[in-house]
């Protein structure tokens, strides 16, 4: 059965935290904490911790970018210099390492930065579809708890939401 979303809006992090605790403790069938997302105007690590470990892989893209940048940087410059071996260099090396390190360093940073951003975009699943359940007050001062679960469990989840004075509960049709 396809899952559906429901979103509850809260006035503060304390209420949202209590709701998450109850959701976790409820152990409902067809519902996992991994399917819960918090939507908030600022980052709140303590609240995010209640959702369980959610690893971030952006650094791997950074590492790949840094390695790629250094390699590509040095290879491009060295190959351009080595392209013309007949050039008279007066005994100096055709591919001088120390000065080439400057451009290698710049490309290491440039591609490292760009790959970090690309990694973040991939983690955000851009340009993927997002849940249509969103309230503009989330970007202002409200905290949203978005749950994806079996339609049969949704009433029970909404019941838990309702026990913690939500400002609003929004639902969607099953897909």
């Amino acid at each position: 059965m396809s899952k559906v979303h429901t979103l509850a809006l809260y006035n503060d992090f304390e209420e949202a935290g209590r709701t998450l605790q109850e959701l976790k403790a409820a152990n409902l069938p067809g519902f996992r904490m991994d399917d819960v997302a918090i939507k908030s105007p600022i980052e709140h690590p303590e609240l995010s911790e209640m959702l369980g470990k959610r690893p971030v892989y952006v650094q791997l893209y950074t590492l790949a970018g840094a390695v790629l940048g250094s390699t590509v940087g040095f290879t491009l410059i060295a190959s351009a210099q080595a392209n013309f071996l007949l050039q008279i260099r007066g005994g100096r090396p055709v591919v001088p390492i120390p000065p080439d390190m400057v451009l290698t360093y710049e490309l290491f940073i440039l591609i490292g930065v760009l790959m970090t951003v690309v990694g973040c975009f991939i983690a955000w699943k851009l340009p993927g579809n997002r849940s249509t359940l969103y309230n503009t007050s989330i970007s202002e001062d409200k905290i949203g708890i978005l749950v994806k679960a079996d339609p049969l469990v949704i009433p029970k989840i909404n019941e838990i939401f309702s026990r913690h004075q939500p400002l609003e509960i929004m639902g969607e049709q099953g897909r």
């Binding site: 997302a37 918090i38 939507k39 930065v113 970090t116 990694g119 983690a123 955000w124």
Partner: peptide, 25 residues
Amino acid sequence: SLGWQGTDRQWANFRVAYLTIACFL
């Protein structure tokens, strides 16, 4: 805004990426 909705996953990735870029800069 690239579909930003302020989800915990977005924030976590955003923080790491922003800090990493700051370290490069």
